[in-house]
Design a protein around this nucleic acid. Sequence first.
DNA 1: AAATAAAATGATATCGGTTACATTTTAGTT
DNA 2: AACTAAAATGTAACCGATATCATTTTATTT
Lengths: 346, 346
Amino acid sequence: MSNIREVARLAEVSVATVSRALQQPELVSVKTRNKVLAAVKQAGYQPNLLAVKFRSGKSHNLVVLVPTVANVFFARVISGMQEAAQQRRYSLLLGNTMADDNAEIAYARLVQTSQADGLIQLRAFDPFATLDMTTERLPMVNACEVLDKAPCPVVTLDNRAAAMAMTEHLLSLGHRNIAMIKGPARSPLTRDRVAGYRDALDAAGVAFDETLLCPGNFTLQSGHQATAQLLQRKQRPTAIFCENDEMAIGALQCLKQHGLKVPEDISVAGFDDISFAAFSDPPLTTIAQPAEEFGRTAVNLLIDVLEQKLTLLPKVILPFELVLRGSTGPVKMSEPATDTPAVHLT
Amino acid sequence: MSNIREVARLAEVSVATVSRALQQPELVSVKTRNKVLAAVKQAGYQPNLLAVKFRSGKSHNLVVLVPTVANVFFARVISGMQEAAQQRRYSLLLGNTMADDNAEIAYARLVQTSQADGLIQLRAFDPFATLDMTTERLPMVNACEVLDKAPCPVVTLDNRAAAMAMTEHLLSLGHRNIAMIKGPARSPLTRDRVAGYRDALDAAGVAFDETLLCPGNFTLQSGHQATAQLLQRKQRPTAIFCENDEMAIGALQCLKQHGLKVPEDISVAGFDDISFAAFSDPPLTTIAQPAEEFGRTAVNLLIDVLEQKLTLLPKVILPFELVLRGSTGPVKMSEPATDTPAVHLT
DNA sequence: AAATAAAATGATATCGGTTACATTTTAGTT
DNA sequence: AACTAAAATGTAACCGATATCATTTTATTT
């Protein structure tokens, strides 16, 4: 590959002039500039940006830690990141970490070693916290699932309010026996959504029943499995609120296999509004999150930090939307029959 | 950030010794090595890998051009790439190109400018072809949808045979009126799968009907739309073979909305075997592709090329598998009734 | 103890750009 | 024509590591 010296030789000027002709053309006479451009063309010269980055100390790369790229919601987030990064001329280094702390720490080292300028974390874990830092904190933005006391800008959604809104919706349909298929127990996301669920129950004067909370891991399979468990209860719930759409779709299948009709026999709600949610049978009632916007905002915030356009620590809260589709409906009047005398219904 | 000179100063040795103590410890005396390691620790030294990369001329980055990261199949491919790249200590630079030639060419420049060592292309387009190359070809691997005459290693699947296998399956169930929802017309993938479909029809002596081919774009929506069109035909098909699972799931929804039962009234088949395929209603008969393996293989091939472990141009063909689920079934005997006299059925 | 080989360490060029500073050329003024 | 300011260009240091080659130190042999 030809370098700047080669071009300088061809154009019969100094390397500094070549550099200037390309970077600040106004500093170079038209005649020289043309000579240089001709030489660039002749040599097929492409500046070695690795050298530029090294010299400038800026890699113009951002590391993104994604728990699972194969998750549809995160795929949308990444899509938004891509868009914003490209616009601002940064590249994304993708880290598929399977939510493994050590894998994330390994990726965080890319920032420490100047291979990336900053990091976007989509999980409530601070990979820099454990790196023995003699210097100040490295640039980071935390999005989607955020740390309670994040030492960095944050992009999130009011998960508690969203879960409350969904639960209120189910309550308004007459449901009183509402199960929830959660995510991993330690996750703040799970905690907040359970809290919102509880808020709604409390406000409606419905007793909270811990045993209605079923653990899942955000996959179709886990939604199916958890639902199967719920159906073994002597009094089965009249509605299942899943913490994401994948689990809700898993739940739908399980219910179908048990011969239950949704929403006639049981209502199902999801969270995220992935594309498949509108195409399930029945289409899924869910909470829509602006996934791409999460990505765009996170990238823009991080670059703002890097370019010093930001001093304080912003906390961006994106809006959610309750999307009503066919998977939720009024509770069946005969429902409590299993363990309630029919006389109550009169 | 502290650098190697700082460490050398602290350890009271030369920078060369520091470098050696870290890279080839066996060349340095134990005493000196310990002094250096202590200094490294004291200074919180992390080698600037941007400098290392610059010096070595190798970025250890790979560009991946993905038509749509939000596509479930590609998400799995990326997942596999990640895994392989991490193992071999490379990073992935992700380019979400929306199948736009110019966007891909822009990303290809990352390789030209030494920011990445090679490129993986998941589409039948050669972004290097248009770059005026004075030098030899830049390292590239083409996977999933491949160029007919790819000037590089290739990872693919026998799409023609796979489509033929699925069509044969449908034929064996008695279907003679089989529609196909295709991908974009220009794609070799589409061409090969249509060819395989036709192979099977020909072998069975069933006439090929061009009007049964319906264009789609691999999204849920397009599957839905195309199906709606097919249902307007005076003689509606008894089976629909979709070129990917998303479109098949879109088709399922459309059929449901029209009050048609799958597979009793009409059979539906997909391609890819994404996770949702097993959870649709009914579960989707499809062609399983080893998506993660595509990613892993592509990355390993590219790195082999980069590390000169490869001279010839390999063409890896991964296996597919026909996965039979509930969305395909025998053709209804009364089906041809719409435009065939009942007398034929006796 | 001297000679020699082997091991350890140091000085420095190098990668390919950018940029501060020095120098030369051109344009403008009297 | 002489002088000055401005514009254009050149020289060389620099970014942080690696690696070659030279030099010094240590170990081994006689």
